[in-house]
Nucleic acid binder design. Structure first.
Lengths: 241, 241
DNA sequence: CGCCTCTTTGATAAAAGTCAATCAGGGTGG
DNA sequence: CCACCCTGATTGACTTTTATCAAAGAGGCG
């Protein structure tokens, strides 16, 4: 985990290509300039390493700049539940705001880089900038919605619907990032997908194979191509957020 | 839905018996006094009525003063997922902060009363009160944790563990309120419990019956007594938050 | 008292998990 | 450069869990 101070203007939020997805989402050009004050540092995390782990002091929230990560809970028995896969432009660590130490961990699925927003900086600087307060509330509210949506997926959908929803969700988030929504590489294993979706890795694998057999997708290992988006959406029900 | 302005000092946060559970949790005596400014109104909702519904403008967050409510999502196909049961002292509507209109609804399980904290008031008053900003961040962070915990329950636990966890969770929250943790009345139907836990009402009913047969609980309709808390905890795994 | 809703219980079916045996790819060291 | 090994993925056979369908019972309220 390597810390890198942000000094060049080209590295700031106001100049970032992710600025209409990440922390600055929905903010005016001028307001984004204020955000630059908050983000003074980046951190590099190599594949498999943790950004923060259970019991670590909550110091900051993080915007994923590049790479891919997962966030997960772990109970006393060691049982793990992945609560999210994080793509560039998405925020990590908002669940820490409720405590002084982390109850979850964030792990890099591949070599990644995050921008750091220190909590103490938020407290110090933002009283004079109500727009940033609203922004944090909005982002946290979105995180609650995401999690509720996940509860709905786990509570109401059958395995094939969960897997279809998962593929469509990844696809649409990649599209937002400007990547192809049709063809992409999964950054996580079948086991991680299964854990996330409340299924076993075998069930996930079987459904991928079935979708391929039915010409809904092409899949070879982690290389996915969506061949029939409409049919997948049909299968997913409606909610493919 | 009846609005009631708060005028008497005895109705304010600083005098409320729920003050160490509700919005003021963890705040100093002086800081709670500041909260009084925010809470100018209460609303009464009778059983079965909604506090806010899908598409309603997000105007406020609410602290449940008395009664019991549920919050739920509803997808385009009409499929419902209950995301939480709300007891007195708990906060409703934090998921609205991510949007301008509600994507969830809050329904009264029995005649209830909530205290209203208007979002515009938060924006107006709080810039000068950083402690309240922190408080809202903390509360929203707790809400994210709650929801993640629910994801874990749905993703990793088997039906008997989910039901045991549910009973222990309700029991411990009632204990926090000063009620008996041993004996209580469920305010929701078997169907609502099943929906919440991602199970059918029959499965919930069968497990209640089985727990009763094994002398872990006494249950008659909605009247529950926990007879063997340790055994239930054992059954639940560990996480009984 | 009777109706209506909620709950319980049983029989059966469907979904998903478990266990186990390959199979494929990627990386490493000879 | 190639063979080998190790991890991750696929597929099959079988079991367990949970849902579905159906019927009967209990309580509450007009």
């Amino acid at each position: 985990m390597k810390r890198i101070p942000i000094t060049r203007d080209s590295d700031r939020c106001s100049a970032c290509i992710l600025s209409d997805i990440c922390l600055p989402i929905g903010m005016s050009r001028q307001d984004v300039a204020l955000l630059d004050e908050f983000v003074q540092e980046r951190v590099r995390i190599s594949k498999g390493k943790v950004l923060f782990g259970l019991g670590d002091t909550v110091e900051a929230i993080y915007g994923l700049r590049s790479g891919a990560m997962k966030t997960q809970l772990q109970d006393a028995g060691g049982q793990v539940q992945i609560t999210g896969f994080v793509l560039p432009g998405e925020i990590i660590g908002m669940d820490g705001m409720g405590n002084t130490t982390h109850v979850s961990q964030a792990v890099a699925l591949e070599d990644s880089e995050v921008c750091v927003v220190r909590v103490e900086d938020i407290d110090q600087i933002s009283p004079s900038l109500p727009v940033l307060q609203q922004q944090f509330r909005r982002l946290m509210g979105m995180e609650i919605n995401r999690s509720h949506q996940m509860v709905m997926t786990l509570g109401t959908l059958r395995s094939e619907q969960r897997v279809a929803t998962f593929l469509l969700n990844i696809s649409s988030r990649l599209a937002t990032l400007g990547y192809s929504s049709r063809n992409f590489i999964l950054r996580m294993s079948r086991e991680e997908i299964g854990n996330y979706l409340g299924l076993t890795l075998e069930t996930v694998s079987r459904l991928f194979s079935r979708f391929a057999r039915e010409n809904l997708i092409y899949i070879k290992q982690r290389d996915v191509t969506i061949l029939d988006k409409e049919a997948l959406q049909e299968l997913a029900g409606v909610s493919c957020d």
